[in-house]
Amino acid sequence: MALGVCKAWRAVIDAHRLLRVDLLPFSLGGIFINFNGQVFSEYFFEPSTTPTISLMSNYVPHSTRSGRRNVESHCNGLLLLSGNYVVNPATRWWAQFPTPLRPESSNKFSYRNYLVFDPILSPHYEVFSVPYISYHGLTEESEWPPSSCTLQVFSSSTGGWEDRLFVRDGEDAEMVSDMFLRSAVYYRRALYVRYYTPNIVLRISLLDGKYRAIKPPSDTQINEILSLGKSKDGVYLASVGSEILRIWVLVESCGQTEWLPKYRADLKWKLREKLRSSWVLQDVNYYNEYNGLAIDKEEAEMEARAENDHGPFLFLGFHPFEEVVFLSRSLRWGVAYHLTSSKLQYLGYQYPTGYNYFIAQCEDITDAFPYTPCSM
Protein backbone atom coordinates (compact mmCIF):
# COMPACT_ATOMS: atom_id res chain seq x y z
CA MET A 1 0.00 0.00 0.00
CA ALA A 2 1.44 3.38 -0.99
CA LEU A 3 1.82 6.02 1.68
CA GLY A 4 0.65 9.48 0.71
CA VAL A 5 2.59 12.48 2.04
CA CYS A 6 1.05 15.95 1.86
CA LYS A 7 2.97 18.85 0.28
CA ALA A 8 3.57 20.54 3.63
CA TRP A 9 5.14 17.38 5.05
CA ARG A 10 7.24 16.92 1.91
CA ALA A 11 8.54 20.49 2.29
CA VAL A 12 9.50 19.84 5.90
CA ILE A 13 11.14 16.54 4.99
CA ASP A 14 13.09 18.13 2.14
CA ALA A 15 14.17 21.03 4.38
CA HIS A 16 15.61 18.58 6.90
CA ARG A 17 16.86 16.12 4.26
CA LEU A 18 14.67 13.36 5.71
CA LEU A 19 13.96 11.79 2.32
CA ARG A 20 13.97 8.11 3.34
CA VAL A 21 10.29 7.69 4.21
CA ASP A 22 10.83 3.92 4.33
CA LEU A 23 13.03 4.42 7.41
CA LEU A 24 10.32 6.17 9.43
CA PRO A 25 8.31 4.39 12.17
CA PHE A 26 5.24 3.13 10.30
CA SER A 27 5.03 -0.41 11.70
CA LEU A 28 4.82 -2.23 15.03
CA GLY A 29 7.96 -4.09 16.04
CA GLY A 30 7.01 -5.56 19.41
CA ILE A 31 6.42 -4.55 23.02
CA PHE A 32 8.99 -3.60 25.64
CA ILE A 33 7.81 -4.79 29.06
CA ASN A 34 9.13 -3.76 32.48
CA PHE A 35 8.80 -6.62 34.95
CA ASN A 36 9.13 -5.47 38.56
CA GLY A 37 12.65 -6.02 39.91
CA GLN A 38 14.25 -6.86 36.56
CA VAL A 39 17.42 -5.03 35.48
CA PHE A 40 16.46 -4.79 31.79
CA SER A 41 13.18 -4.32 29.96
CA GLU A 42 12.09 -7.48 28.14
CA TYR A 43 11.22 -7.42 24.43
CA PHE A 44 8.14 -9.41 23.31
CA PHE A 45 7.79 -9.79 19.51
CA GLU A 46 6.87 -11.97 16.52
CA PRO A 47 10.16 -13.29 15.05
CA SER A 48 8.62 -14.51 11.77
CA THR A 49 7.42 -11.03 10.77
CA THR A 50 9.68 -8.67 12.76
CA PRO A 51 13.48 -8.40 12.55
CA THR A 52 15.15 -9.36 15.83
CA ILE A 53 16.79 -6.39 17.53
CA SER A 54 20.07 -6.66 19.40
CA LEU A 55 20.01 -6.95 23.17
CA MET A 56 20.49 -3.42 24.52
CA SER A 57 22.57 -4.92 27.31
CA ASN A 58 25.22 -5.68 24.65
CA TYR A 59 25.87 -2.06 23.71
CA VAL A 60 24.26 0.31 26.26
CA PRO A 61 26.57 0.85 29.27
CA HIS A 62 25.29 -0.64 32.53
CA SER A 63 26.57 -1.89 35.86
CA THR A 64 25.67 -5.55 36.40
CA ARG A 65 22.98 -6.03 39.09
CA SER A 66 22.97 -2.36 40.09
CA GLY A 67 22.51 -0.11 37.05
CA ARG A 68 18.99 -0.69 35.77
CA ARG A 69 18.25 0.02 32.13
CA ASN A 70 14.45 -0.06 32.04
CA VAL A 71 12.49 1.75 29.34
CA GLU A 72 10.88 4.88 30.82
CA SER A 73 9.47 6.46 27.66
CA HIS A 74 9.09 5.69 23.95
CA CYS A 75 8.43 7.99 21.02
CA ASN A 76 8.54 7.10 17.32
CA GLY A 77 11.31 4.52 17.56
CA LEU A 78 13.50 6.10 20.23
CA LEU A 79 13.58 4.80 23.81
CA LEU A 80 14.42 6.71 26.95
CA LEU A 81 16.12 4.41 29.47
CA SER A 82 16.76 4.88 33.17
CA GLY A 83 20.18 6.42 33.68
CA ASN A 84 19.46 9.24 31.18
CA TYR A 85 20.07 7.18 28.04
CA VAL A 86 18.31 7.63 24.69
CA VAL A 87 18.53 4.56 22.44
CA ASN A 88 17.50 3.55 18.94
CA PRO A 89 17.35 -0.28 19.09
CA ALA A 90 16.94 -0.57 15.31
CA THR A 91 20.35 1.01 14.65
CA ARG A 92 22.14 0.33 18.00
CA TRP A 93 22.66 4.09 18.40
CA TRP A 94 22.66 5.52 21.93
CA ALA A 95 23.46 8.76 23.74
CA GLN A 96 23.43 9.94 27.33
CA PHE A 97 22.11 13.32 28.44
CA PRO A 98 22.94 15.17 31.69
CA THR A 99 20.67 15.46 34.72
CA PRO A 100 19.18 18.98 34.98
CA LEU A 101 20.03 21.28 37.85
CA ARG A 102 16.95 21.88 39.99
CA PRO A 103 16.11 25.20 41.67
CA GLU A 104 15.62 25.08 45.44
CA SER A 105 11.90 25.82 44.99
CA SER A 106 11.50 22.46 43.25
CA ASN A 107 12.43 20.37 46.30
CA LYS A 108 8.79 19.58 47.10
CA PHE A 109 8.36 17.92 43.69
CA SER A 110 9.51 14.68 42.12
CA TYR A 111 10.16 14.45 38.38
CA ARG A 112 9.74 12.03 35.51
CA ASN A 113 11.30 12.38 32.06
CA TYR A 114 9.39 11.91 28.80
CA LEU A 115 10.79 11.68 25.29
CA VAL A 116 9.55 13.68 22.30
CA PHE A 117 10.86 12.69 18.86
CA ASP A 118 9.19 13.54 15.55
CA PRO A 119 11.41 12.41 12.63
CA ILE A 120 9.03 14.00 10.14
CA LEU A 121 9.95 17.41 11.55
CA SER A 122 13.50 17.03 12.81
CA PRO A 123 16.24 14.45 13.41
CA HIS A 124 16.65 15.84 16.94
CA TYR A 125 14.82 14.74 20.09
CA GLU A 126 13.77 16.49 23.30
CA VAL A 127 13.33 15.28 26.87
CA PHE A 128 10.63 16.93 29.01
CA SER A 129 11.11 16.79 32.78
CA VAL A 130 7.57 16.87 34.21
CA PRO A 131 6.97 17.50 37.94
CA TYR A 132 4.54 15.66 40.18
CA ILE A 133 3.67 15.82 43.87
CA SER A 134 4.69 12.83 45.96
CA TYR A 135 3.44 11.88 49.42
CA HIS A 136 6.47 13.43 51.08
CA GLY A 137 6.32 16.60 48.99
CA LEU A 138 3.45 18.44 50.67
CA THR A 139 1.67 18.42 53.98
CA GLU A 140 -1.16 20.61 52.72
CA GLU A 141 -3.23 20.67 49.57
CA SER A 142 -1.90 22.62 46.62
CA GLU A 143 -3.35 23.93 43.36
CA TRP A 144 -2.63 21.62 40.44
CA PRO A 145 -1.94 22.29 37.71
CA PRO A 146 -0.87 25.85 38.57
CA SER A 147 -1.76 28.85 36.42
CA SER A 148 1.69 28.67 34.84
CA CYS A 149 4.56 26.22 35.00
CA THR A 150 8.17 26.28 33.86
CA LEU A 151 9.32 22.92 32.52
CA GLN A 152 12.93 21.93 32.02
CA VAL A 153 13.52 20.59 28.51
CA PHE A 154 16.66 18.96 27.11
CA SER A 155 17.31 19.37 23.38
CA SER A 156 19.72 17.14 21.46
CA SER A 157 20.25 19.97 18.97
CA THR A 158 21.85 22.19 21.64
CA GLY A 159 23.07 19.49 24.01
CA GLY A 160 21.68 21.29 27.05
CA TRP A 161 18.63 21.97 29.21
CA GLU A 162 16.47 25.08 28.95
CA ASP A 163 13.46 26.46 30.82
CA ARG A 164 10.17 26.75 28.92
CA LEU A 165 7.14 28.54 30.27
CA PHE A 166 3.71 26.95 29.80
CA VAL A 167 0.45 28.68 30.74
CA ARG A 168 -2.67 26.87 31.87
CA ASP A 169 -5.56 26.91 29.44
CA GLY A 170 -9.13 25.91 30.21
CA GLU A 171 -10.70 25.00 33.55
CA ASP A 172 -9.29 25.95 36.93
CA ALA A 173 -7.00 23.57 38.75
CA GLU A 174 -7.99 21.19 41.56
CA MET A 175 -6.66 21.12 45.12
CA VAL A 176 -4.57 17.99 45.63
CA SER A 177 -2.08 16.66 48.18
CA ASP A 178 -0.41 14.02 45.97
CA MET A 179 -0.16 13.31 42.24
CA PHE A 180 1.75 10.47 40.63
CA LEU A 181 2.86 10.43 37.00
CA ARG A 182 2.32 7.44 34.75
CA SER A 183 2.40 7.04 30.98
CA ALA A 184 2.59 9.67 28.24
CA VAL A 185 2.10 9.85 24.47
CA TYR A 186 3.12 12.36 21.82
CA TYR A 187 0.50 13.23 19.20
CA ARG A 188 0.23 16.15 16.77
CA ARG A 189 2.79 18.42 18.43
CA ALA A 190 1.45 17.85 21.94
CA LEU A 191 2.60 15.71 24.86
CA TYR A 192 -0.21 13.99 26.78
CA VAL A 193 0.82 12.99 30.31
CA ARG A 194 -1.39 10.91 32.58
CA TYR A 195 -1.48 11.46 36.33
CA TYR A 196 -2.70 8.64 38.53
CA THR A 197 -4.20 10.56 41.47
CA PRO A 198 -6.47 12.12 40.46
CA ASN A 199 -7.08 10.57 37.03
CA ILE A 200 -6.33 13.52 34.77
CA VAL A 201 -4.40 13.88 31.52
CA LEU A 202 -2.25 16.96 31.04
CA ARG A 203 -2.07 18.10 27.41
CA ILE A 204 1.15 20.09 26.89
CA SER A 205 1.12 21.92 23.56
CA LEU A 206 4.53 22.39 21.97
CA LEU A 207 3.06 24.86 19.48
CA ASP A 208 1.57 27.62 21.67
CA GLY A 209 3.13 27.06 25.10
CA LYS A 210 -0.17 26.18 26.80
CA TYR A 211 -1.31 23.19 28.80
CA ARG A 212 -4.73 21.89 29.73
CA ALA A 213 -5.96 19.48 32.40
CA ILE A 214 -8.33 16.94 30.82
CA LYS A 215 -10.67 15.26 33.28
CA PRO A 216 -11.33 11.49 33.03
CA PRO A 217 -14.46 10.09 31.35
CA SER A 218 -17.59 10.81 33.38
CA ASP A 219 -18.48 7.11 33.65
CA THR A 220 -15.24 6.11 35.43
CA GLN A 221 -14.62 5.65 39.14
CA ILE A 222 -12.21 7.79 41.16
CA ASN A 223 -9.74 4.95 41.76
CA GLU A 224 -10.26 3.19 38.42
CA ILE A 225 -6.97 2.29 36.73
CA LEU A 226 -6.83 3.99 33.34
CA SER A 227 -4.16 3.48 30.67
CA LEU A 228 -3.19 6.16 28.16
CA GLY A 229 -2.08 5.40 24.61
CA LYS A 230 -2.08 6.37 20.95
CA SER A 231 -3.73 4.43 18.15
CA LYS A 232 -5.45 4.76 14.79
CA ASP A 233 -7.77 7.66 15.66
CA GLY A 234 -5.54 9.58 18.07
CA VAL A 235 -5.28 9.56 21.87
CA TYR A 236 -7.06 6.71 23.71
CA LEU A 237 -7.83 5.62 27.27
CA ALA A 238 -8.39 2.03 28.36
CA SER A 239 -9.74 0.38 31.50
CA VAL A 240 -9.54 -3.36 32.28
CA GLY A 241 -11.51 -4.15 35.43
CA SER A 242 -13.22 -7.44 36.35
CA GLU A 243 -12.38 -8.62 32.81
CA ILE A 244 -14.44 -5.79 31.31
CA LEU A 245 -12.47 -3.83 28.70
CA ARG A 246 -13.56 -0.25 28.02
CA ILE A 247 -12.00 2.12 25.47
CA TRP A 248 -12.45 5.88 25.04
CA VAL A 249 -11.07 8.19 22.35
CA LEU A 250 -10.24 11.86 22.94
CA VAL A 251 -12.14 14.33 20.76
CA GLU A 252 -10.72 17.87 20.53
CA SER A 253 -12.62 20.64 18.79
CA CYS A 254 -12.73 24.44 19.13
CA GLY A 255 -10.68 24.39 22.31
CA GLN A 256 -12.90 21.75 23.95
CA THR A 257 -11.90 18.20 24.90
CA GLU A 258 -14.10 15.19 25.58
CA TRP A 259 -13.61 11.45 26.09
CA LEU A 260 -16.10 9.53 23.94
CA PRO A 261 -16.84 5.82 24.57
CA LYS A 262 -15.52 3.73 21.67
CA TYR A 263 -15.57 0.04 22.67
CA ARG A 264 -16.75 -2.20 25.50
CA ALA A 265 -16.14 -5.96 25.76
CA ASP A 266 -16.50 -8.76 28.32
CA LEU A 267 -13.15 -10.55 27.95
CA LYS A 268 -14.07 -13.70 29.86
CA TRP A 269 -16.58 -14.66 27.14
CA LYS A 270 -13.98 -14.09 24.44
CA LEU A 271 -11.65 -16.78 25.80
CA ARG A 272 -13.66 -19.37 23.88
CA GLU A 273 -12.41 -17.85 20.62
CA LYS A 274 -8.69 -18.23 21.24
CA LEU A 275 -6.43 -17.71 18.23
CA ARG A 276 -2.79 -18.73 18.56
CA SER A 277 0.33 -16.95 17.42
CA SER A 278 4.04 -17.39 18.05
CA TRP A 279 5.42 -14.30 19.75
CA VAL A 280 8.50 -14.86 21.91
CA LEU A 281 10.24 -13.09 24.78
CA GLN A 282 13.83 -12.03 24.28
CA ASP A 283 14.58 -13.19 27.87
CA VAL A 284 17.43 -10.72 28.25
CA ASN A 285 17.45 -10.83 32.07
CA TYR A 286 18.01 -14.59 32.26
CA TYR A 287 20.96 -14.55 29.86
CA ASN A 288 22.52 -11.44 31.44
CA GLU A 289 21.62 -11.70 35.13
CA TYR A 290 20.43 -15.19 36.10
CA ASN A 291 22.57 -17.36 33.82
CA GLY A 292 25.12 -19.27 35.85
CA LEU A 293 23.03 -19.18 39.02
CA ALA A 294 21.55 -22.31 40.57
CA ILE A 295 18.55 -22.64 38.29
CA ASP A 296 17.47 -25.21 35.73
CA LYS A 297 16.05 -23.14 32.86
CA GLU A 298 13.92 -25.95 31.41
CA GLU A 299 12.54 -26.97 34.80
CA ALA A 300 11.74 -23.37 35.73
CA GLU A 301 9.96 -22.77 32.42
CA MET A 302 7.91 -25.95 32.72
CA GLU A 303 6.81 -25.03 36.25
CA ALA A 304 5.84 -21.52 35.20
CA ARG A 305 3.91 -22.77 32.14
CA ALA A 306 2.04 -25.28 34.29
CA GLU A 307 0.67 -22.57 36.56
CA ASN A 308 -2.90 -21.40 36.14
CA ASP A 309 -3.25 -18.94 33.26
CA HIS A 310 -6.76 -17.87 34.20
CA GLY A 311 -5.77 -14.87 36.30
CA PRO A 312 -6.50 -11.18 35.68
CA PHE A 313 -5.70 -9.15 32.59
CA LEU A 314 -3.15 -6.33 32.66
CA PHE A 315 -3.09 -3.65 29.99
CA LEU A 316 0.10 -3.51 27.88
CA GLY A 317 -0.74 -0.92 25.25
CA PHE A 318 -2.50 0.05 22.04
CA HIS A 319 -1.41 -1.00 18.58
CA PRO A 320 -0.23 2.33 17.12
CA PHE A 321 -1.86 1.84 13.69
CA GLU A 322 -4.67 -0.70 14.13
CA GLU A 323 -7.73 -1.11 16.36
CA VAL A 324 -5.99 -3.64 18.60
CA VAL A 325 -5.09 -3.60 22.29
CA PHE A 326 -2.41 -5.73 23.93
CA LEU A 327 -2.98 -7.42 27.29
CA SER A 328 -1.13 -9.73 29.64
CA ARG A 329 -2.96 -12.74 31.10
CA SER A 330 -1.67 -13.70 34.58
CA LEU A 331 1.73 -12.22 33.58
CA ARG A 332 2.22 -15.45 31.58
CA TRP A 333 0.52 -14.92 28.24
CA GLY A 334 0.56 -12.04 25.81
CA VAL A 335 -2.88 -11.39 24.33
CA ALA A 336 -4.19 -9.19 21.53
CA TYR A 337 -7.83 -8.15 21.45
CA HIS A 338 -9.05 -7.04 18.03
CA LEU A 339 -11.59 -4.32 18.71
CA THR A 340 -13.41 -4.32 15.37
CA SER A 341 -13.79 -8.11 15.08
CA SER A 342 -14.08 -8.85 18.84
CA LYS A 343 -11.50 -11.66 18.53
CA LEU A 344 -9.10 -12.53 21.34
CA GLN A 345 -5.70 -13.73 20.13
CA TYR A 346 -3.15 -15.48 22.37
CA LEU A 347 0.20 -14.18 21.07
CA GLY A 348 2.65 -16.32 23.03
CA TYR A 349 4.30 -17.09 26.35
CA GLN A 350 5.82 -13.90 27.81
CA TYR A 351 6.95 -14.93 31.30
CA PRO A 352 10.71 -14.37 31.91
CA THR A 353 12.76 -17.46 32.70
CA GLY A 354 13.41 -17.80 36.42
CA TYR A 355 11.32 -14.77 37.30
CA ASN A 356 9.27 -16.55 39.98
CA TYR A 357 12.48 -17.98 41.49
CA PHE A 358 14.06 -14.60 42.23
CA ILE A 359 11.15 -12.18 42.65
CA ALA A 360 8.93 -14.36 44.88
CA GLN A 361 5.72 -12.49 45.77
CA CYS A 362 6.59 -9.26 43.91
CA GLU A 363 5.79 -10.40 40.37
CA ASP A 364 4.27 -7.55 38.41
CA ILE A 365 4.41 -5.59 35.17
CA THR A 366 5.09 -1.94 35.95
CA ASP A 367 5.12 -0.51 32.39
CA ALA A 368 4.85 -1.60 28.77
CA PHE A 369 5.65 0.23 25.53
CA PRO A 370 4.53 -0.84 22.01
CA TYR A 371 7.61 -0.19 19.90
CA THR A 372 7.72 1.23 16.37
CA PRO A 373 11.19 0.77 14.80
CA CYS A 374 12.83 3.78 13.17
CA SER A 375 15.90 3.04 11.02
CA MET A 376 17.06 6.64 10.61
Rank of each mutant, 00 (worst) to 15 (best):
A2E: 14
L3M: 13
V5R: 09
R10I: 02
A11V: 08
I13M: 15
A15W: 06
A15D: 14
R20Y: 09
V21M: 02
L23R: 13
F32H: 04
N34H: 10
G37R: 13
Q38F: 11
F40K: 09
S41K: 02
F45S: 06
T49Y: 07
P51D: 12
T52W: 06
S54V: 11
L55D: 10
T64L: 09
T64E: 03
S66F: 05
R69W: 07
N70W: 00
V71H: 07
C75M: 05
L81P: 05
Y85R: 12
N88F: 01
T91F: 02
P100A: 14
S110K: 14
N113I: 02
Y114Q: 08
Y114M: 02
P119H: 07
P123G: 10
H124V: 00
H124S: 10
Y125N: 02
E126A: 13
V130W: 02
S134L: 00
S147P: 06
T150H: 11
Q152I: 05
V153N: 10
S155Y: 01
S157G: 00
W161L: 15
R164K: 15
R168N: 09
R168C: 08
E171V: 11
D172C: 10
M175V: 06
S177E: 07
A184H: 03
R188G: 00
Y195T: 06
T197Y: 10
N199P: 12
V201D: 06
V201R: 07
L207Q: 13
L207W: 05
G209L: 14
Y211F: 15
A213F: 01
P216V: 01
D219Y: 00
E224D: 13
E224Y: 03
S227R: 05
L228T: 12
Y236T: 04
V240D: 02
V240W: 01
S242W: 08
E243I: 01
R246F: 00
G255T: 10
Q256C: 14
T257C: 15
P261A: 09
P261W: 06
P261H: 09
Y263H: 15
Y263T: 00
R264C: 11
D266L: 12
W269N: 13
K270E: 12
K270F: 04
K274V: 13
K274N: 12
R276C: 09
W279N: 06
Q282D: 08
Q282R: 01
D283R: 02
V284K: 01
Y286A: 05
L293C: 08
A294V: 04
M302W: 01
H310T: 12
H310D: 15
F315H: 01
L316I: 08
P320C: 13
F321K: 08
E322F: 10
L331T: 02
R332L: 13
G348F: 05
Y351F: 15
Y355F: 13
N356I: 07
I359K: 07
T372F: 01
P373G: 10
C374R: 04
